[in-house]
Amino acid sequence: MLTFSDYKKKITDNWFLLSELVKKGVRLKYRRSYLGILWSLIEPILTTIVLVIVFGTMMRKRPPDFSLYIVCGRIVYSFYSSTTKSACMSLWKNRSMIKKVYLPKYLYPIAECVYQFMIFGISLSVVALVMLYCRRAPTHFIWQVIPALMILFLLTVGSGLILSPLHVFFRDIEYLWNVVLMLIQYMCAIFYYPKKLMNSQWGFILKLNPMFCIIDAFRGGIMGYLADPWDLMYSGCFAVVLFLLGVFVFRRCQEELVFYL
């Protein structure tokens, strides 16, 4: 059984490798692209414009601040989907190293999550831009953003720790996960208002989706209303359990997976 000081030693021992892997992710993302860091701002802006035009005109009366509503949901969801996808592939992509030297393999999915989270932090400035466009000032509800982002990060790391070893054993997890992500997307209320659905008998679908709870809290922080604190608690517990499950799954698989790479 490992004690706390053992874990501390492990973390400090591996800190340098983790930081190198994170650096590699950030550097390679922006190398050889003329737009550089601007690209991570343009992408969410463009998708938000399209979503606002398409779904905004579909509604009979476009609600105020619809663009802010969309950009909040869209940016949080796309972080989760792109990061879990790349974390899923991370062990497979680095197989030439893993097969050759002994190294702590769990650093690969975690590094993937960390560097994507840093880029996500940069792209959050898009939200500030849209707030300016909508002439919204931040209110005292903004504190909700911090727990929402922390839970989001933990949820992503947990998903990555489960997906990456499974992907080594079952190569078609990649496609299956895309399907699951699409279902999650539709259950997140990104481009529609959940009010009607919430009041129907199917409201529990949204309530059970931790991503919806995270997006709702994030949105509450940006748009200035108080999201249901129980939802936030639920998603927090969900993320912790998923993270622990991820640690368990990864520890079970890490010795075996080198034979499948």
Partner: peptide, 20 residues
């Protein structure tokens, strides 16, 4: 195990980190 898009300088640090 080198990262092809990386320069020698960057690879020395990455590879060294992998080797512990």
């Amino acid at each position: 195990g080198f990262e092809l898009q990386y320069t020698a300088r960057e690879n020395i640090f990455l590879y060294g980190a992998v080797l512990g």
